[in-house]
Design a binder for these strands. Structure first.
Lengths: 227, 227
DNA sequence: GCAGCGTTTGACCATTCGGTCAAACCAAAA
DNA sequence: TTTTGGTTTGACCGAATGGTCAAACGCTGC
């Protein structure tokens, strides 16, 4: 690695560039930020961006790699808690929320670039995959394998529910007339999500066994769109 | 308006440009698309983009305006259904899903540009505001005014849960090994969301009245993050 | 036929983009 | 002191960007 070189602060410069890129990419998206912007934000010569990180694309990739590592670490911390299914679900939810609160730029950054082709962003897919497979495995005992109550739908719903808050926070604020990222509101949000997990799990556990394994999911009180 | 001019197809050209911009902005984001790209996609001279729509920013604004109108129309269709609270909630959910299915590019487009400053995108705020105020009003009888079960949290959760699917569809596909936008899966998703509405409403309606109005929300079976 | 007018075209502009490079820099090893 | 090698700088490149414009086009009413 390029660490601890003879002069001033080599790794420090590379890191300042990375942090500047983090802020700008999250705020304006990959295409919305120029290398000049990044260099200026980092207080550094533009050429240094290429010296330390190769290119704009490679810089972006390194940024995502760092996030992916932290994401995977945070989730696996949540995964290897023991206890009942309910306790494990709450552990993972908390781990996910911890990660999102400490890396809320990640959610914005990913969210901005994911809508296009996810082809070019394997880190994101791998990150999602971890959570998806864990959930599919752990919900197998209470969810039917197919239909609207299959684990894969709860994966989308609960990861969506968790991420949405942090991604849309700047848009939510004017609606609420209150800062969604305040300590009080973040704690309330956490309680809300745990309540949702409990309510959902309660209902799933109360399903007749026949409806958990069969292909015909419960349709009670649901309806189609024609009013 | 500039409609029905003497030559070839005036309004048609403006519309083709708008449609091309729609596709490209949704796929690559505002900054990721050049006016040349749009003109090429529309099969039209670049100058015409400026002739018909003024500038890139103004073109984008018109696009959002059109979506906002359709969004507002779709929602108000769902709003003025009668019946019980439960029936009205399902109507609005269906109206919202109908809109998202017919305008899935809107979700991607909005989602891409909302994370930055929502300052410059008043159309988006107004669109969200319609749904937020309707929900806050209609949930007032079953939700406490504050705390983790306040209507505003359910607004974020359920709009998030609904939108996420359509925005992340390209990223979900490789995970599922199945196309989330297929007819079968979209119908399943709809049933899943109605199930979530029912489960949530059931629990809210079973809350003791004291917990619906008081400032202390129920904490049963929820926990803090330290495991 | 001809004027009038909305539309279309392609050349053109200044600016910014991602990226390169030779030269200068500077602390530590010799 | 001189050499060394990782680091920093500013000038520079071709391509692409958003935007402009005078000229050409083509239909309609006269």
């Amino acid at each position: 690695m390029r660490g601890m070189g003879p002069t001033s602060q080599p790794a420090d410069t590379a890191d300042r560039i990375l942090r500047a890129a983090d802020e700008l990419f999250a705020a304006r998206g990959y295409a919305g930020v120029s290398v000049r912007d990044i260099a200026e934000q980092a207080g550094v010569n533009k050429g240094l961006v290429y010296y330390h990180h190769g290119s704009k694309a490679e810089l972006f990739e390194r940024l995502l790699d760092g996030y992916y590592r932290r994401h995977a670490d945070a989730l696996s911390d949540g995964f290897d808690h023991g206890g009942s299914l309910r306790e494990r679900l709450h552990s993972v939810m908390d781990a996910y929320l911890d990660f999102l609160e400490e890396n809320h730029r990640y959610a914005q950054l990913v969210q901005r670039e994911i809508a296009a082709g996810s082809e070019a962003i394997p880190q994101i897919r791998r990150g999602l995959s971890l959570l998806y497979e864990w959930l599919a495995e752990n919900l197998a005992t209470v969810c039917p394998p197919d239909g609207p109550l299959a684990a894969r739908h709860f994966f989308v719903s609960f990861s969506g529910i968790a991420v949405t808050y942090y991604v849309y926070a700047p848009a939510i604020e004017p609606l609420w007339g209150d800062d969604p990222m305040s300590v009080k509101n973040r704690r309330q949000r956490r309680e809300h999500l745990h309540w949702m997990v409990d309510v959902t799990l309660d209902r799933l556990e109360s399903l007749p066994v026949s409806e958990r394994a069969g292909r015909a999911p419960p349709r009670r009180a649901t309806r189609r769109r024609g009013s």
